[in-house]
Computed example of a mutant assay.
Amino acid sequence: MPLKDVLAATLVMLVWGMNFVVIDRGLVGVPPLVFVAVRFAVVLLALPFVARPRAPLRKVLAVGVFMSLGQFGLLYTALAVGMPPGLASLVLQAQAVVTVALAALVLGERPLRVQLAGVGLGVVGLGVVAVGRGGHVPAVALVLCVLAAVSWATGNVLVRRLGVPGGLGLTVWSALVVPVPLLALACVVDGPAAVGHALTHLSLVNWLSTAYTAVLASLVGYGIWNRLLEHHPASDVAPFTLLVPPVGIATAWLADGEVPTALVVTGGVLLVAGVALVTLGPRWRRRPAAPVEVSAGGSHAVR
């Protein structure tokens, strides 16, 4: 992969990693479901300029229920009830592990042994994170974040099952299913008065956060990501997502002084290692054997 593409992929990971702190900042004074609805209403402004995925709209919306509405509705609510953004950036990556498990159950896909090892390692890591989250992180916040990862993984499996092309088109067109249902649900949960007040009293911070998440994270981020996937194998591009948790944790530490406990760090390392096995395992399996050279001393060097 050329250096410019490596830098582009790294830039996207920086944007996506910092996204969690930006969301957390923007949630101040706005019910989480309302804030998700506003974000995706802004995403929908790109609808006339982005081609619809080559699939029936009902399939696109079905994916959107889990990948857009469910994932972000649960994630924003988790952050609103006390999930630290750095920890959220880590836990959400469990979606890769859950995707493999769901694909095996729903699609009958047979994961490789290395992927099964990754799933097991990821589950152990998530358990260690749960034990070591510290008293300042409500259990309900952690559960909601895990459910957000499950919702994302379910969307991934639906993309495969329904044959819906992923990418920017899916991000934009699936947003059709987000604003109205979430605003209706927010009216039930928070009350129409609170929803109306939030929509008419959005602060500059709320709008800046929305602009970052909708424009940079969703539109620009996926635009660059899709271009990379068009020009390079997915096995070369996907591993860059492993940079998201470190960026998210570092950003939360610098911005909020969020210092993870030793158990959270241990669990995080295990979880990311599990995701790495799930993501990179197939690539290792397909990689041809490297040529072996014999050095003058008789030892073997693999290039």
Results as ranks from 00 to 15, higher is better:
143 V>Y: 06
299 S>A: 13
209 S>G: 12
267 G>H: 07
139 A>N: 02
292 V>A: 09
262 A>V: 15
284 W>S: 01
37 A>M: 14
281 G>N: 01
288 P>F: 11
106 V>M: 01
222 Y>E: 01
124 V>N: 10
285 R>K: 15
70 G>R: 06
240 F>H: 10
258 E>G: 06
245 P>Q: 11
270 L>Y: 00
185 L>V: 15
70 G>A: 08
8 A>Q: 02
284 W>E: 00
256 D>K: 08
261 T>P: 04
260 P>W: 07
231 H>K: 13
218 S>M: 11
99 T>A: 15
10 T>W: 03
264 V>Y: 00
112 L>E: 11
232 H>S: 09
282 P>L: 10
293 E>Y: 10
261 T>M: 05
247 V>M: 11
229 L>Q: 08
183 L>C: 10
143 V>W: 12
162 L>Y: 10
108 G>N: 03
15 V>S: 03
241 T>W: 00
21 V>Q: 13
114 V>K: 07
257 G>T: 00
26 G>I: 08
117 A>F: 08
237 V>N: 02
73 G>V: 14
75 L>A: 14
138 P>K: 11
202 L>M: 15
50 V>R: 01
34 V>P: 11
159 V>N: 04
200 T>P: 04
97 V>T: 08
41 A>K: 07
204 L>M: 09
109 E>A: 09
55 A>D: 07
245 P>N: 04
107 L>A: 09
256 D>V: 00
166 G>Y: 07
200 T>S: 14
280 L>T: 11
199 L>Q: 15
271 L>D: 04
218 S>E: 13
51 A>W: 03
141 A>K: 04
288 P>Q: 06
231 H>V: 03
78 A>K: 09
101 A>I: 10
162 L>C: 02
269 V>L: 15
249 I>P: 00
129 V>C: 01
185 L>D: 09
266 T>Q: 00
74 L>P: 07
161 R>Q: 15
173 W>V: 12
128 V>F: 02
58 R>L: 07
136 H>S: 12
59 K>C: 08
75 L>G: 07
36 V>N: 09
138 P>M: 08
217 A>W: 07
17 G>I: 05
127 G>Q: 13
238 A>G: 00
75 L>R: 08
294 V>P: 02
228 L>N: 11
82 G>F: 05
84 P>C: 03
97 V>W: 05
82 G>P: 08
256 D>M: 05
265 V>F: 09
170 L>K: 04
175 A>Y: 05
85 P>S: 07
50 V>A: 02
103 A>N: 04
167 G>V: 05
301 A>I: 14
159 V>P: 01
261 T>F: 06
230 E>Q: 13
21 V>A: 14
27 L>P: 03
227 R>G: 02
127 G>D: 05
300 H>R: 15
151 S>W: 13
76 Y>Q: 11
19 N>Y: 00
239 P>L: 08
91 V>E: 02
103 A>C: 07
280 L>M: 14
9 A>W: 03
228 L>E: 10
140 V>A: 15
122 G>W: 04
75 L>D: 03
231 H>F: 01
244 V>N: 05
275 V>M: 09
165 P>W: 00
29 G>A: 09
111 P>K: 10
191 G>R: 14
260 P>Q: 04
199 L>E: 09
95 Q>Y: 13
150 V>S: 00
